[in-house]
Amino acid sequence: MAIREIRYAEAIKEAMCEEMHRDPDVFFLGEDIGVYGGAFGVSTGMLEEFGPHRVIDTPISENGFVGAAIGAAITGSRPIVELMFSDFMAVCFDQLLNQAPKMRYMFGGKVKVPLVLRTPSGGGTGAAAQHSQSLETIYAHIPGLKVVIPSTPYDAKGLLKTAIRDDNPVIFLEQKRLYQTKGEVPAEDYTIPFGKADIKRPGTDCTIITYGRMVELSLEAAEPLAKDGINVEVIDLRTLLPLDTEALIQSVQKTGRCVVVHEAVKFAGFGGELAATVNESEAFYSLKSPIKRLGAISAPIPFSPELEEHTFPTTDSIVAAVRETMK
């Protein structure tokens, strides 16, 4: 396979383009995705490649066009819709909560909803409280949806292709802070299955369960810990729904310790589900210390960089949490 280094944003575009070439039913819609290339430049050049009938600029009308994507999906199209910021789910939430995930069940299994909602998620960009949130927990709470959060360019391409080929509504949460990061990505077609976590770093002493941007920070945190003889195992969930519960359980059974890290607000966050998954399993009996959770503080995300940085877990706070479990 030809492997090059490309950016996370480019990997996403590559997945969309390859899938649009492969399947004429796939099309793409969203605000300013055409000439402008999308708010984060992900779709630069796609309009030229596919034309305005397959790369459709929408009015500023999230409820309208997200609903339209659903209507297209149930009639034989396979839309990819870009929501400019994941925070804007609030203005189209009925479609994401009451419509897309309910239809198949409510209609007795007669309909498929092959829809991908791609949306930039997360903070660290100085955009403050209304453009920085990580809202995956809300989606993960809705049966009928799938929730995907890629942490590398490789995963972004492979997971997005799986999402586009999936016959269910998939929420694809791109990590804003990772758009410009580079990584090895095959130029060929490949997919990554949903519900299979990735062990990013094998270890023996403590399991860090994480996803998205926090994977990078957790891997960074592993270095100083290793120097002190603490070998952490870092697990990247890749998809929250479906969740690879087996991977978590097996890892904690091996290490006996567990730290859960995410960028979303800690209180009532997805980490609670992860901790409970471990606690409710056989792995509970292997635990040598209480599970620790790290997430954002319970406040709207502040603007000032100094304040914002301390809103989310940091490499230092991850190191400290792991040390805590080792006491």
Binding site: N63, G64, F65, V66, G67, A68, A69, I70, G71, A72, A73, I74, T75, G76, S77, P79, D94, Q95, N98, Q99, M103, M106, F107, G108, K110, V111
Partner: peptide, 28 residues
């Protein structure tokens, strides 16, 4: 709902059927 008969659903949430109708229009 009865997709085979073109019935894309009755809807318990007022107004939400209209954006979906647009999407069916897009497919057409």
């Amino acid at each position: 709902a009865d997709i085979d008969k073109g019935v894309l659903g009755s809807n318990g949430v007022l107004g939400s059927n209209a954006p979906i109708a647009c999407g069916a229009g897009l497919t057409i």
